[in-house]
Design a protein around this nucleic acid. Structure first.
Lengths: 216, 216, 216, 216
DNA sequence: GATGAATGAGCCTTCATTCAT
DNA sequence: GATGAATGAAGGCTCATTCAT
């Protein structure tokens, strides 16, 4: 039929279960970023997605569950991002650390919106063990991976460093610039944030990293 | 009156304006830590303080205002803490950086309860410029102070470092171990947190700091 | 088609209109008994029948109508039961009253489930004239029939009784033991219930009934 | 002040806890009678009492609890009514049975409104053991009392009767005429209802009761 | 100052009903 | 006929805020 073409452009009224759920989770992220955890309502999410509020409950049953699914979605997305970056990097520890650092600056994942949504969960996490459990596994994997890479670098460079502490400082600084960038009063940009991380790497591993990135 | 004596022992029914307000702010911190930002209610605060429902509004008029006052209270307390530490330290930059680092580990300020309350505000901050303004002044003062000290150390040691970035990495790591300690899944303790910061300081300023603290 | 054979064994996907409706009405009775009037939902009925949500509305259009049809179904079933019992009884008034009494203890009609469903309607009846109208005709027929039988017995036995009141007391006692049996705290069983009715019949009509049933 | 007098007439804006709760329970009874169990809402109750809906929750916390308290109130009221009637009756079993019968026709308790409210609970009772427990104690007391009185009458009159069954038939008939009166299609009035009960009493206890009441 | 009953806006959730497939 | 996603009205409940006492 001649009228088939437009259909491919407009959104169909009925979507498959999974497609609709992803749409609603993305709307949740957007709402969380715009309104914060405490003020996000189911109605906001529905309005943001351009759907009726009843549909949100149809797919997620409760607000609690919608938030849990959203957190899982974000956590998995983050995890897959750094794992893909690692898989695409060369075999050297230097290249791998660099890939890990750059992964966190991937524009697809590290949008202000997603950062704000993450931050919403952080603030409430302490009173909600449920949400912690959604991420602990992925977080642990990240930390161990980072430590393993640092250990190789220390061995290679003969640095006199406490591996765990070095890995921790690196991770906290990466997370920290994230948070700084997300705050409205951020006084520096993405490039400066990356430079800050490289400054740290260069200080810990001077044979592998300079202040502008990995040494040749 | 004959019944006056016991009153001197128990809490007086009528407290001075200011004393009552501090009592309520402390109750707010406790409630925030226990319930999180999104679930804290005025009723919780009143119950936690052992006072009536209406009294909270009598003193603070709105919830918004109570939270703002609480944040200001926390922010000032934090600020006074590191400024006092600085004032009590020797005149050298080394001693001053050490004082700043140790100030953040002061047991009076850095209780789990207070950390959790802080964190509650963090999570909501991005969508509430009001709260940011409550702290930006103090935060800025802290950052400038830290940069000034780092600048002196760099000059003294002849380190080849970008002062702003170094100061930033130090600050983010200090804040980061704070947050780690507060999360339930914290895998390390306060001493290890301090050691992590010293590891970083030693890496940046090897002539002034060792992994266990300032060099003699 | 080659795949037709298995279909003959399982429930056919397409049932005749009437068969489907009876299936759904039976599911409604079951749901009403299990959940009560106030908590029964269309979804419960569909799930109970193992059918899809929308099909209930396809056949009954509205919930109100489904309930009305269910009540009519129950009322007619009840009516047909005692009329059949009456038709199967001998021509004497004694035999007919006995048949009427026993009809109410028919295990096919007087199941706990059906009793509970009936009871659901009772509770709402006073505020929903619709449902009353569904039953008033049948109820009236029953009452008149009972009065007619009592009148014959009174004439035969020369009892000095007010026929309407006697018939009413009999009816209320029969209904009452029904309700007692349905309540969870029922302290007696079906046999005792029947004995109670016979005790009453024997008191009113001592020449026709003993405490164990009709006299020879 | 001169304007004090009217205040005594109008309802005070603030009532004591207990007074307000009784007011709300009475409104619940009225609403239950008017709308039925399934359609009663908290908003209906509030509107009926002329108060805000928030106040209902303030005093009763949940709808479930409001209904439970209402049922307890009705049950206790009913119980106190027949116990008072009994206490005011003479010492003879005849006078006591008569008092018990008449108690159920007390115009203060046996209003159409209260009957309809009772009936609302009946319909849902089977699926709500909670509500049953609210009444079982009082019901049992009533049944035992009635049996005791019947036992004395049987002994006095030398009647050949099964006491439990007789007491049960009496109770069911009394309850039954209640229900009949409440249904819209009631074909008889209160006097006829009482006459029906006396007809039964006269049949069981001819030496003590006539069709118009206790014999002299 | 202090209390707690009272108000009402707004939230989460349920569910009868519709309708595209 | 049958399915199940989608809608929206309505209900229960929470809670910030007000105010008479």
């Amino acid at each position: 039929m001649l009228t088939d073409a437009p259909k491919a452009i407009t959104l169909p009224r009925k979507l498959s279960r999974e497609a609709r759920q992803v749409q609603l989770i993305e709307a949740t992220i957007e709402t969380l970023a715009a309104r914060g955890f405490a003020r996000m309502t189911m109605g906001d999410v529905a309005k943001c997605a351009g759907l009726s509020h009843g549909l949100v409950n149809f797919h997620f049953h409760t607000k609690e569950n919608l938030l849990a699914e959203t957190l899982r979605y974000l956590s998995n997305e983050y995890c897959e991002n750094w794992q893909a970056a690692l898989a695409g990097a060369g075999p050297t520890a230097q290249a791998q650390l660099n890939a890990l650092i750059l992964a966190d600056f991937n524009l697809a994942i590290c949008t202000p919106e997603r950062l704000a949504a993450w931050c919403s969960f952080w603030g409430e996490a302490q009173s909600r063990p449920l949400y912690q459990q959604e991420c602990d596994g992925n977080d642990l994997a990240y930390r161990l991976q980072l430590q393993k890479i640092c250990a190789v670098l220390v061995a290679e460079g003969g640095y006199c460093l406490h591996i765990e502490r070095v890995a921790r400082a690196l991770r906290l600084t990466i997370d920290g610039v994230w948070l700084d960038l997300m705050m409205a009063n951020a006084a520096y940009d993405r490039a400066e944030a990356l430079a800050t991380v490289y400054t740290l790497a260069a200080s810990f591993f001077p044979k592998h990293f300079g202040v502008d990135g990995p040494l040749p």
